[in-house]
């Protein structure tokens, strides 16, 4: 879709959560996502790039 920095999340209705986790685990998951978002913001990209919270960045 052209967005340069994308963090992959788990489901449409809850971009920064995961209701299947208990509340402490969910909070940790959210922290992981936002940490990844900050990493993306500090990374130089040349085109749409997906940052997987569990892995490496790759072209979209």
């Amino acid at each position: 879709m052209g967005a340069p920095r994308i963090v992959r999340t788990r489901g449409i209705p809850f971009p920064t959560g995961d209701p299947s986790l208990d509340s402490e685990e969910e909070r940790e998951w959210r922290r992981q996502l936002i940490d990844k978002a900050l990493e993306a913001l500090s990374t130089s990209v040349s085109g749409p790039t997906v940052f997987d919270p569990a892995g490496e960045a790759q072209p979209a």
Binding site: G11, P13, F14, P15, T16, G17, P19, E26, R27, R30, R31, L33, I34
Partner: peptide, 16 residues
């Protein structure tokens, strides 16, 4: 919207 309404931080991650 059930999940987001139950915990709006799932939509706007203010806590983190």
């Amino acid at each position: 919207t059930e999940a987001a309404n139950e915990d709006p931080d799932r939509m706007v991650p203010l806590d983190v």
